[in-house]
Simulated scan of single mutants.
Amino acid sequence: MEDTRVRDLEFRLGYPYVFVHLGNCEHIVVFVDARLKHKQDVQDPNRYPINWGQPIKLATKCSLCSLNLANWIVKGDPRLPQENCLLCDRCLKTFCYDKYGKKVHSLKVYPYMDEFLQKQKNFTA
């Protein structure tokens, strides 16, 4: 596929496609408009495709439950799926601490501030 160009593809406008690279990195691509090139358009083919929009960043969810928003970065717990894991309050409390409030492993916990949520709070305030 590395030699395939957009002009070689047959696609439907408005239909979502999945672009996969590096083996497992997935991006949803939607072609929303297509037309023939005009004199006023950029004539250099190397400058295409032109990106007309900005990607939408969603708030970061907890790595364990995928339900709640992440509030904590946890490092060094061998039971977690990644070395640095983002957890919500509930999962942090139930998974990383015992019933007495003591850490189960020698892990490090840092607060996580989601940039998207901060912008939303500033906008609504």
Score class of each variant (00 low, 15 high):
M1T: 12
M1H: 12
V6L: 11
E10D: 15
F11V: 15
R12G: 11
G14I: 10
Y15K: 08
Y17W: 00
Y17K: 07
V18K: 03
V18Q: 04
F19E: 04
F19M: 01
V20L: 09
V20F: 00
V20A: 04
H21L: 02
L22R: 10
L22D: 12
L22V: 01
N24P: 07
C25D: 11
E26Y: 01
H27C: 01
I28S: 06
V29A: 01
V29F: 01
V30K: 12
F31R: 04
F31Q: 03
D33H: 14
A34N: 10
R35Q: 12
R35I: 13
L36Y: 15
L36M: 14
Q40I: 15
D44W: 05
P45I: 15
N46F: 08
Y48K: 00
Y48D: 00
N51I: 11
W52I: 08
W52D: 04
W52G: 08
G53L: 09
G53Q: 08
P55E: 15
I56T: 13
K57A: 07
A59S: 14
A59M: 13
A59R: 11
A59T: 10
T60S: 07
T60N: 06
C62N: 06
S63D: 02
S63E: 03
L64W: 08
N68T: 04
N68M: 02
A70Q: 05
W72H: 08
V74F: 05
D77V: 03
P78N: 05
R79P: 07
R79G: 09
L80S: 03
P81F: 08
E83P: 05
C88K: 01
C88M: 02
C91V: 00
K93I: 11
K93G: 03
K93S: 12
F95C: 03
K103R: 11
K103I: 02
H105I: 04
H105V: 12
S106V: 05
S106L: 08
L107W: 03
K108Y: 05
K108V: 14
Y112Q: 07
Y112F: 15
Y112P: 02
D114P: 04
F116Y: 12
F116H: 12
L117M: 13
Q120E: 10
Q120T: 14
F123P: 08
T124C: 10
